[in-house]
Write a protein that binds this DNA or RNA. Structure first.
Lengths: 333, 333
DNA sequence: TTGTACGCGTTATCAC
DNA sequence: GTGATAACGCGTACAA
């Protein structure tokens, strides 16, 4: 392995001077500088980032903790994080939590801190009490940390989607399509996002003077299976239902299949609106009207937020950023 | 920050002894041992993995380089890698290449080596000449590296799917369903996987004495759009086509939509078989017959392979592992 | 402008 | 079994 010492020797200078030439923090005369770089070139010297991190207390590494990366949402966010990370010169240390409800995160956190990450992006969905570990004292021992997808809380850096606004757009769209009995299949209600979308559904119907009783509500679990079962259940209870807002696109595709099997015409008998705008939704049959979240943007912003927090390390750290969703109208409504 | 020195002082021993107690590589007397661990507990000492990596020349970090992590395939592989990594105590350094055809990988490789990763999993699809950078000389300067999804080559560690076998199963299934004019929509032919699947289609038809001319072949680009366009084109050329094998499920969903719009009955008029078994494929309309790849398993095996190579660092490094795919029969055929 | 010496936190070697 | 000492590769005071 080639080190600064070798370069220094080859260039006939001291190691310190090589370092100065490399970092540019101290002036180096043009000719020694060129000698040094020539030696670097010839020897194929590459700085050891581990050693550099050790002395600089800066690893240019950001940890990203997420779950269910096979889902479109987390994957898209990850993609956005990566793009911004590359732009700002960070590498990404990835940790996948198999279960988002996991409350015991000590081991994960300890590992990340021990590896000297400069910051952490916590992109695990808020489920149940899985944020309990992040206390005020805890915060002191940790590098800057940004949370993706959770409810606003004082003193925390948070980036999320306006889920209520998205639900509102979905329901208002159904109303504009002359639907008057509008059901909802929600995600699991221990998920913050599911509760927000449910709330948006309820509030919008109430504002419009339409029914929003529990009779029109079914609780799913984000899966297509639960969307299928949910729709059957709702139609049994309420054959008069003519519109439905699904908590996500996965449940929507299940519901679409149930509707086909039951012989319902879409959108004639029943109009559907999903949430997420997964790439496939455009090719559902019929193509699905849905709510687009700016997930890539959320990823970028989250990384930028962490970067800012790292730079101005004295700051309070509180920042809440909300990305507005968008209605995508297709043939299912 | 608490270091070994603090612990040593608190326990009344030398730093070296603390290290010995921690790693267990040298014997430590029971009572000093317990004193040390008590001090560790009280001070909340956490070893600095950066420093440890520096001296040990072992970071317990494995780099994973991939692209298009929003696609099911790469994401699923990543998931498998992560599971095995956790089991073996590795952390993952993730690099996303925006363009899989990218041939200039110097910067990425340099960064990973500089960060002292113990091994690399190269999970970028083989496209065009994007493996050219990996030469015999190059190999000497790099830690162990395993390639996912590429053609077998001497001296390399490779984990992949038997794409030809998968294609064969798909076509044989269509034949068993009494189809005699079987088309294919291929992925971009600069992709190795696309070529393999195409080859499987051709060979199986030839073996069965059925037509496999270019008239029955269209080149897509993996996207649903291209599946839609491809099917229209094929049906225009060959109205007698009664079966079709799609290079992946994305193109299949596009083809399904085109078939609906053209008024074709599935599978009555036309039977479809896809490739990948993405989660949504079960909910396409009708549910899609497809080929399941063991992608999670591929990820696990790739990491295990790297781990083995790291442990026995003198080995040649050549190992080719092929995972067999599986036919999933649903209602589209 | 450049060289020297030390420190980052840890482990390994060699004495004792 | 334990304690000094050196070393991993680099950055940075301080001195020259």
């Amino acid at each position: 392995m080639i080190t600064v010492k070798h370069v220094a020797q080859a260039a006939g200078v001291s190691p310190g001077t090589v370092s100065n030439a490399l970092t540019g923090k101290r002036p180096v005369s043009p000719k020694t500088r060129s000698r040094i770089f020539q030696a670097i070139e010839e020897l194929g010297y590459k700085p050891n980032l581990l050693a550099r991190s050790l002395v600089n207390r800066r690893s240019h590494t950001i940890a990203i903790v997420t779950s269910e990366v096979e889902q479109f949402g987390p994957a898209r966010i990850l993609s956005g994080i990566d793009e911004q990370a590359e732009e700002l010169g960070y590498s990404l240390l990835l940790t996948l939590m198999r279960n988002p409800a996991e409350e015991d995160v000590e081991q994960t956190i300890t590992n990340l801190v021990a590896r000297g990450v400069d910051g952490i992006i916590w992109a695990v969905h808020q489920v149940g009490n899985n944020r309990r570990w992040f206390t005020a004292e805890r915060r002191k021992e940790l590098p800057p940390i940004a949370f993706v997808t959770m409810e606003p809380k004082p003193g925390m850096a948070i980036v999320n989607t306006d889920n209520r606004a998205g639900a509102k757009m979905a329901v208002q769209h159904l109303i504009s399509r002359e639907r008057r009995v509008i059901g909802h299949i929600a995600g699991p209600l221990d998920w913050w996002e599911a509760r927000e979308r449910l709330h948006g559904w309820r509030a919008t119907l109430a504002d419009a003077g339409l029914e929003n009783s529990d009779d029109l509500l079914v609780k799913g679990n984000w899966s297509a299976e639960s969307g299928e079962a949910g729709l059957r259940q709702l139609l049994e209870r309420r054959p008069d239902m003519d519109g439905i807002f699904l908590g996500n696109d996965q449940m929507a595709i299940g519901a679409l299949q149930a509707a086909h099997r039951l012989g319902y015409a879409i959108p004639g008998d029943l109009a559907l609106v999903g949430f997420d705008n997964i790439p496939e939704s455009r090719y559902f049959w019929p193509p699905l009207t849905t709510i687009h979240q700016g997930l890539f943007e959320i990823g970028r912003v989250a990384l930028q937020t962490i970067h800012d927090a790292i730079e101005e390390s004295g700051a309070s750290g509180e920042r809440h950023i909300t990305i507005q969703p968008e209605l995508i109208v297709r043939e299912s409504s």
